[in-house]
Computed example of a mutant assay.
Amino acid sequence: MSSQSVLRTLPFIAISLVVVIDLVIGPTVGFLPLLTLGPTFASVAGGVRRTALVGLLALAICIPLAVYDGLLGKPQNNLTIATIIGVTAASMLASRLRNRRERELANVRLVAEAAQRVLLRPVPRRAGDLRIALSYTSAAAEAQIGGDLYEVVTTPQGVRILIGDVQGKGLEAVETAAWVLGVFREAAYDQPELAEVVERVETSLARHLSGEKFVTAILAEVHEREISLLTCGHPAPVVLRRDGGVHFAEPEEEALPLGLGALGSPRPKPHRVPFGEGDQILFYTDGVIEARDPDGCFYPLAERAHLLRGADPQAALDELRADLLRHVGGPFPDDAAMLLLRRNSG
């Protein structure tokens, strides 16, 4: 039985238990006021009309029970009847407000899903000799979008990748993510060098961001048997070798996050990492490695990377995401994006 079915039957279960207990024990304890549990539980999962009907049922049962207990017309029973009427009215109001809130959340989801389709377009599942898998988990379940961003584009220079994380949350973070993606999608085609793409994004963000806001990111470009990585304050990707080796592709020189170029730090050149047939590389945002279990332990990504060696990249990444959710064991604390690239082995 689903939780929704349980909630819908709970009012009748509560009323039935009160009736049975009262018939067995009698009027000495005074269980009749507990009939208000019926309309109270009804307001949790039912509408206004259903809540009112359950309240009328509780009232209809209260009167013959009062006769059975010899309480009809006494102040104690009159107070019980008034309590049932009052709780039913309050429950009807609560049900109305809950239904309105649910409709508002449904509208927010529709708008957010439309925004997500525009902002975070589906990445291609194949690009050249690459197979690509994607996983995105939002901490804001109602909105389904946040400050994490990703993109894969095929350009004259080859396949270029962006994954990043905007500082902060909410609509402002989403706006910044949209700005970065828009600039990257244009610059990735126009600029011959990956470092020039970064400069283009940095220049644009300097006009858009205010204060000390920033965006951590990794930009990548796939070459024959290699991949170039330019890290801007972002966690290093995990490289899974065909022979079973696993390591983090730490940058030789790390740049400041995007948006902090005014501090004067020079932009480093991309560094190349071997990326041959059968190799994989996992890009991710910090919501993955900073996810904690109930004991406060971070998610051990390197230890769980073996889950990515399944035959199908998307199925393997979905398995890793499921493992991450099991590790957290509750609501996800932060947005988490993962992008897996696998080089075909034949």
Rank of each mutant, 00 (worst) to 15 (best):
V197L: 09
V198L: 13
E202D: 08
E202F: 11
L205P: 04
H208L: 09
S210K: 15
K213Y: 11
T216N: 02
T216K: 01
A220M: 06
A220E: 01
H223F: 15
R225D: 15
E226C: 13
I227V: 09
S228I: 11
G233N: 03
V238L: 02
G244Y: 05
G245N: 04
G245T: 06
H247T: 10
H247K: 08
E253K: 15
E253C: 14
A255I: 03
L256W: 04
A262P: 01
A262K: 11
L263G: 03
G264V: 05
S265I: 12
P266Q: 10
P266N: 10
R267H: 10
K269N: 14
K269Y: 13
H271T: 10
E277W: 10
E277V: 15
L282H: 01
F283N: 00
Y284N: 00
Y284L: 09
T285P: 05
G287Q: 06
I289Y: 01
A291R: 06
D293P: 04
D295I: 07
G296F: 09
F298M: 09
Y299S: 01
P300I: 13
H306E: 09
L308Q: 00
G310R: 05
Q314Y: 06
A316K: 07
A316I: 04
L317N: 01
L324Q: 02
V328Q: 12
G329P: 08
P331A: 13
P333H: 13
